[in-house]
Simulated scan of single mutants.
Amino acid sequence: MSARTALAAAPRPAAGALSRGLLVALALAVAVDLGSLLAGAELGHLIAKPLLLPLLAAYAATRGAPRLLLAALLLGWAGDVLLLSDADGAFLAGMGAFAAGHGCYLVLFGRRRTSVPLGIVYTGVLLGTVVLLWPDLPAELRIPVAGYSFLLAATAYRSSALGLAAGAGGALFLLSDTLIATGLAGWPRPPAPDFWIMATYVAAQCLLTAGALKAEYGERRTTD
């Protein structure tokens, strides 16, 4: 990295203050959303959920995030908003937005090397989950869910190329959407499933963002 590039990459004090402010706002929005889900306060969830990914994307932008990361986060926001609607086709449209976001993540991960044994594990998880869920899924959702599950497992696997934090984020994303899929199939789920779906989802997006920023700029860029 040249001296000029290093100076450009170093966050300025004003940008650092803005980043910290956005993190505080994100933490408050997460607390409101998860607290609303635990309390059964639907209005709080409807207000807070659409704020989460824009705040995370804004924070990432202040840290010089790659465009593909911002695109993945904003596509996740589109999916979040669509899944709040009961309109016909909103679920499939939301799934499509998330699928496009996973595509952005996969391109962002590039050709970095990843563990072969881990790939075998995720392949087994993908195949086992789809096979087990298939008979209980609504017929019109079987193919879309299977296709989306492939992208989701690919993101979970390839995210580990960016380090432990991103790898954990990919795994949590897989867990979150698996909880959604078990609900679609009518399987038993843990108490307060919507809380756990959102908790693992938000953690996943935050960890993927942190891992991508660290891979792009190093530790200092993500913490100053």
Rank of each mutant, 00 (worst) to 15 (best):
R12P: 01
L92W: 00
G64E: 02
D224Y: 13
A25P: 07
P13T: 07
F173H: 05
C104P: 00
G147K: 04
G170L: 06
S176C: 08
T223A: 15
G211H: 04
A8L: 14
L164W: 15
S19L: 10
F195L: 05
L55I: 04
L132V: 13
F195I: 06
L18E: 14
D80E: 09
M198E: 05
L137I: 09
D194K: 13
A139N: 03
R220H: 14
A61K: 10
A90F: 06
S176H: 05
Y105N: 02
R158L: 10
P193K: 04
T155D: 08
A100Q: 01
D86K: 14
S176A: 13
G170V: 08
L56V: 09
C206D: 06
G89E: 00
R67C: 10
L152N: 01
L73C: 00
A78S: 13
A58Q: 03
G103W: 11
L56K: 04
R67T: 11
L137K: 07
G170H: 13
L43Y: 11
L37C: 03
A60M: 05
L179C: 04
S115F: 02
V131I: 15
L55F: 12
A192L: 08
L51N: 06
Q205L: 06
R111L: 14
L18S: 07
A212E: 04
T129Y: 02
F195M: 06
R112N: 11
V145D: 01
T209P: 04
F98V: 13
T178A: 12
F98W: 08
Y122T: 03
F150S: 12
A3Y: 12
L56S: 04
A215E: 13
R142N: 01
L133F: 07
K49N: 09
L37Q: 15
R142I: 06
G119M: 05
Y105A: 03
A146V: 12
G101E: 04
A199C: 10
A29E: 05
P54M: 09
L137H: 04
L74G: 06
L75G: 08
A48H: 03
A156N: 08
A31I: 06
G40L: 09
G94K: 00
A60R: 02
L141C: 04
E42K: 14
S19W: 13
V32H: 07
L52E: 11
P11A: 12
P117D: 11
M1F: 14
A203S: 15
R189K: 12
L184Q: 11
A3V: 14
H102L: 11
A99L: 15
L73A: 01
G186W: 12
M95Y: 05
A27K: 04
L34V: 06
F173C: 00
L137N: 02
A41R: 14
W187Q: 03
P193S: 01
P190W: 01
G170I: 08
W77H: 15
W134S: 07
L162F: 15
A165Y: 09
